[in-house]
């Protein structure tokens, strides 16, 4: 199993020209577990950890450009957390410090796990992924175009996820994740809510309750009706009739498995979205992790 460690994007593409089916390694916190367990043995591995173009983040106008090699630890850094608090919240729920130092945003996206912790927030933020090819070709896609099934993406052979763009300071952001222990746990259900007061939009995404992240548009529409955008407050109760939680439960498409039951996942998603909304309209500032 040859492992290439290109030192630039150009070098990475050069390797991929010769081995377009190579497995990209971007942190390895999932991939190496599978290799060590004997479940995966790709012909070629291209490790992207030394590619400088994929590292770090920058501001581009009112957008934050996140390198695909950005680690969870970097997502939690105060400077970035101020610009994209929801992503910082999601990153903090991932693994242990060691895992957060190794795992990357690009790795989380391309692994395409239904339980990927950054995915619901990226969906709620309306993030755009930039994919690159060795011929210089670039395409920009939304998360729903890129991740199409459990562990399935539309990344083409030889294509590399380069960066992720989100709007800086896009309103109130809340991410909640339910797991069966208090840290270092795979999500049983999660929810991301972004209330953008400038654009007057609400976006809701659910994690771990379907084969891919689910954008709950019906919930968004109903929630928008409850918002007084000028006063930046809710004009109606989120619960009581139970309708709001019911909409979330209807949007979810969970399964029973060894981690939880479909019934609990639906229920938990409803609770999380309701709580996320309440927090988004609370007088307190949204908490960074």
């Amino acid at each position: 199993m040859p492992v290439f460690v290109p030192a630039s994007l150009e070098e990475a593409f050069a390797v991929l020209e010769g081995a377009p089916g190579a497995q990209l390694l971007a942190g390895g916190t999932d991939f190496m577990v599978e290799v060590n367990a004997g479940q995966r043995r790709p012909a070629t591995v291209v490790a992207l950890g030394a590619v400088p173009e994929l590292k770090g983040w920058r501001l581009d106008g009112d957008e934050v450009v996140l390198g695909a090699g950005l680690t969870y630890t970097e997502m939690i850094s105060p400077e970035l957390a101020e610009l994209v608090p929801g992503l910082a919240q999601a990153a903090r729920t991932v693994g242990s410090p060691q895992i957060r130092n190794a795992g990357t945003l690009g790795g989380n996206i391309a692994t395409a796990s239904p339980a990927g912790d950054t995915l619901p927030m990226l969906m709620a933020l309306g993030a755009t992924m930039t994919l690159g090819r060795s011929d210089g070709g670039r395409r920009a896609v939304g998360l729903d175009e890129l991740v199409v099934g459990p562990k399935r993406t539309t990344l083409q052979p030889g294509e590399v996820l380069l960066e992720v763009r989100v709007r800086a300071g896009a309103g109130r952001q809340e991410f909640l994740k339910v797991g069966t222990r208090n840290a270092m746990v795979i999500a049983v259900a999660s929810a991301a809510v972004v209330v953008d007061f400038e654009r007057r939009s609400v976006r809701v995404a659910l994690g771990s309750v379907g084969p891919v992240v689910i954008r709950a548009e019906e919930v968004e529409r109903e929630a928008a009706k409850l918002i007084d955008w000028d006063a930046r407050r809710l004009v109606g109760p989120l619960e009581g009739s139970g309708d709001f939680g019911e909409l979330v439960r209807t949007a979810a498409r969970p399964i029973d498995d060894h981690r939880s039951t479909a019934a609990y996942r639906r229920h938990a998603a409803g609770v999380c979205v309701t709580r996320a909304f309440r927090r988004a309209f609370s007088s307190e500032e949204s908490t960074a992790p």
């Binding site: 919240q89 809340e174 909640l176 208090n182 609770v271």
Partner: peptide, 14 residues
């Protein structure tokens, strides 16, 4: 502190 509530790092508790 928030992390010491049920749900811990998942920020779920109210």
């Amino acid at each position: 502190p928030e992390i010491a509530l049920p749900g811990g790092a998942g920020r779920t508790a109210e």
